[in-house]
Nucleic acid binder design. Structure first.
Lengths: 208, 208
DNA sequence: CAATGTGAAAACTTTCACAGCC
DNA sequence: GGCTGTGAAAGTTTTCACATTG
């Protein structure tokens, strides 16, 4: 549907728009201006972002919430189940297993793995923790296409390799280290400490 | 030191460079090319990023690890203690309290708050959990300048207001909602679900 | 002579403003 | 009259290439 290359930031904003409009009723109509205020951007930006993918609005009126929800969900692939595996059921891993956004209708964590024998076999948030050795086999049997890495740094690359061997197409990496993946796999790093460091920089700008 | 406005992404990359060079010895010398390979960017990018802040390299040689560490740490404000408060000691909150990057030499979580009476008074990771009512008072007494919000969505704005009342200068918000802050406070949102949705979009691009 | 620092060019993103539609 | 969709302009970031330096 997209004419050519879509900026990654546009996709990110679509997620944000979707979150914002979910609070409204299907029948309601929002203008780009109203939507922009809700999420903190400009009306032109909203229109440009949406226009990459089609014509969803009605001139003179605005965007109908129901239609927009459907379109954005479809663009983001949220209208079909996304099957996920999480590796590393430590503190952060178990928090994410319970995190509302990670166990929604669209996202289903189908498998969890750890290398700690005392955790293997236990069930947490409805998911049974399995041995990391089984990663490739389970990923491919369960047709899982997204992997989340919440292991310590030293294990991250190995785990990524196993996920890829099993056939995941995307990896969300929380281990603060660079991991290398082949071109056909999409990697996204979330480094929580870097977020803090960015704020820290800001403080050096404003005062003592 | 910076001549004018520095792109936020440059600051983020500085954090990444710093993480990468920490693995090397003080005396070692790295070229921009080597550093670029380590973090997955281009040599020109590395030089541009650093050149915003000064001349840290030696032409014909490269960058000395020790010097670079010092300079980047200083730029990011990591050469002095950053005092932090965390609000919302749920699953994600307790994971972050234990997260290595959040309890480093530079970052000290000095206070934690929750509104659940059964949690108040308990100690976790060396920090005693206090009642959210005390936020403004503790923030200002302890001279805390960064706040982390890991509460559920409905509480986020209220908590932010209390943090600001106490005098924080920056807020790291993990609640998936838009919160509004005055101009002099720096807000950074980390929405974990959006990261997943970005990957999900990618899958729609490469095939079913 | 190897690698930095840096203008200038290219690529990309956001803003603007307005024709066209409801 | 109000609001979308969209080219064109402005602004920003990245890449390029080279003069300069140890």
């Amino acid at each position: 549907m997209p004419r050519f290359k879509i900026p990654e930031i546009t996709v990110e904003r679509l997620s944000i728009y979707l979150r914002a409009i979910k609070k409204f009723h299907h029948e309601e109509i929002l203008s780009s201006q109203r939507l922009a205020e809700l999420v903190g951007t400009s009306d032109g930006q909203v229109r440009k972002d949406l226009a990459y993918f089609g014509e969803f609005g009605v001139p003179g009126q605005g965007y109908k919430v129901g239609k927009l929800k459907g379109e954005i969900s479809h663009i983001l692939g949220l209208d079909r189940e996304q099957r996920i595996a999480l590796v590393g059921v430590g503190k952060l891993g178990s928090a994410l297993l319970a995190y509302p956004g990670f166990k929604s209708e669209e996202f289903k964590i189908k498998a969890a793995f750890d290398n700690d024998p005392s955790k293997v076999g236990r069930t947490w948030q409805g998911v049974t923790i399995q041995d990391v050795k089984k990663i490739p086999q389970v990923i491919s049997r369960e047709k899982i296409d997204l992997g989340i890495i919440t292991t310590p740094v030293p294990a991250a690359q190995q785990v990524a390799n196993k996920l890829i061997e099993g056939g995941v197409k995307g990896i969300l990496n929380f281990a603060p280290t660079r991991i290398v993946v082949p071109d056909h796999v999409k990697l996204r790093n979330v480094d929580l400490a870097i977020q803090l460091e960015g704020l820290s920089y800001f403080l050096t700008q404003v005062g003592p």
